[in-house]
Design a protein around this nucleic acid. Structure first.
Lengths: 291, 291
DNA sequence: TTCAAGGTGGATATTAGGCAGTTACGTTAT
DNA sequence: ATAACGTAACTGCCTAATATCCACCTTGAA
């Protein structure tokens, strides 16, 4: 049994006459009779009673009719849905974000939502290096991460360069607006994120470049805890500007780290280079590019 | 787009390789590739990404896959259901009954339900003459009615002959077990049902045959009201045995009307002669015949 | 490490067969 | 006599098969 045959049967039931149904289907009457007969043989039961001039739909026929309506409707909906997903109007946008890198994302998402209201989202927060793996494994399509990382097989859309800030509790006001790494090397430092990953690596490398050794207290991957610890003068820290903006008004002092130290990570949107993106993801990239 | 194509696509997605899917579908690989391409063209979107050895289903493809599963499942269920309805295992049994004629029906229905548990019912109560019209209009398939009626285009299965009883309040005990119409002609009579219909007609005709005139008080189509009126000595009445059984224990006296008066209506199951019955109805008739 | 060869998996072209659809005609019931 | 369904023979398209080609990946040897 076939979608086509279901359509035929629907027409027959609704028109009440095979010949009229045939006209509606833009075909001649004999093949319609044949198809009806074929369906009856396949299902092993009479679907319409041909008595005299008018047809009468049997119980089995009524049952088929109702189901046929459902199936054809579902078929139409499916076609429409697949087309929409193909065009990026509908579907699911799977995106990974890094806590340190979400500066303008809410606005962008809101704007995207406005333009493509049917899209649903799956947003995963994680560390940049892990996000890279998620993209590689096709678990997320896009990711906003903090450079530098090994990005050989990825396409990159650079979003922003944000400088790093040295932050301390309110008790320390001994600096201007800018500091060098050398000036802060004695401060007990609690570095965000865990060892071997983006921000962490970036900071240590900058120290290394300036031939200085930080007074490392440890790492903390829980950002709000980190900020609390800094505020309570447990330790100082170094965080990107994006993060600082999110904690505006928090009881800490922030000093921009001198550009001489070349400590600034850039944030980028990445995706797998040699794999086609969903149209939804393409639209998202396009929108971000415009902003 | 076609059920067949949906099956093809399901196989491709589940197997991950076109050639393996082709084996599962007992066909060769080229037509499968072609059909996939055809679907992609029809839907205007890529469904699977062919990169290297492995296929990768796109968002649109995933959407189609999920819908395709639904549609094919619905299709299978439909086939099964229509077959069942055709065999009378499933479906709806539409039956009309007359209040005066339902003697053994509950038992029969219970037994039928046990044998065909999927069948649902539509039971309509009404007067015999109206039921006839309902059967003629194909609103119900079967009806249990009280004869005599004009039954030219109906098939009839005689169910039982039940005699009529003269009923009075408990205050009247002047009779034996049997009475003649002549003996009761002075009693104020309230006849069940309205004029021109089965039982009513039957009773008046019996009086007419025995050249007697009843002392008619009126008619009443509400049976329980009629019984109340009889019990309270408002009037006497004449009712069939079937009805009497249902009101067993009611405070009335009942006297069988003499067979000399030939007053007994037969109850029958009827259906339209020159129209095919649903298998469910056929099964029901068969069961009633056995009992 | 690089290059070549073989194997695997998909796409394309051509061909054959089957089924759906058209036209013409027969049948039946109103 | 007409209207509506069924039957029969024919045509054409669509699907699937066979053969072939192409791309990529793997493997082995220089």
């Amino acid at each position: 049994m076939d979608i086509r045959q279901l359509r035929y049967f629907i027409a027959i039931v609704e028109e009440g006459k095979i010949s009229v149904a045939a006209k509606r289907l833009h075909m001649s009457q004999p093949p319609l009779s044949q198809q009806l007969k074929a369906m009856e043989e396949e299902l092993g039961s009479i679907l319409v009673e041909r008595s005299g001039k008018f047809l009468e739909v049997t119980e089995a026929g009524k049952s088929l009719y109702l189901n046929a309506l459902q199936i054809t409707k579902l078929m139409e909906e499916t076609k429409a849905e697949v087309k929409e997903v193909g065009e990026g109007v509908n579907g699911r946008l799977s995106i990974g974000v890094n806590t340190f890198s979400v500066s303008g994302l809410p606005d962008t998402l809101e704007q995207f939502q406005k333009q493509f209201p049917k899209i649903t989202y799956r947003i995963q927060q994680n560390e940049s290096a892990y996000l890279l793996q998620l993209v590689r494994d096709r678990i997320v399509e896009l990711a906003i991460i903090r450079m530098p990382l090994d990005l050989n097989d990825f396409s990159i859309l650079h979003l922003c360069n944000d400088p790093f800030y040295f932050i301390t509790s309110k008790e320390h006001t001994s600096f201007d607006t800018e500091v060098t790494l050398d000036e802060i090397k004695h401060y007990p430092l609690l570095i965000p994120s865990t060892e071997g990953l983006g921000v962490h690596y970036l900071i240590l490398e900058a120290f290394s470049r300036s031939k200085t050794h930080p007074n490392m207290v440890g790492e903390c991957s829980d950002i709000s805890l980190l900020m609390d610890l800094v505020a309570s003068d447990f330790a100082a820290s170094i965080v990107p500007e994006t993060l600082l903006k999110r904690y505006r008004g928090y009881p800490i002092n922030a000093y921009r780290i001198s550009s001489k130290n070349e400590l600034n990570g850039s944030v980028g949107l990445i995706w797998l280079k040699d794999h086609s993106l969903s149209k939804a993801a393409q639209n998202f990239i396009e929108m971000i590019q415009k902003v």
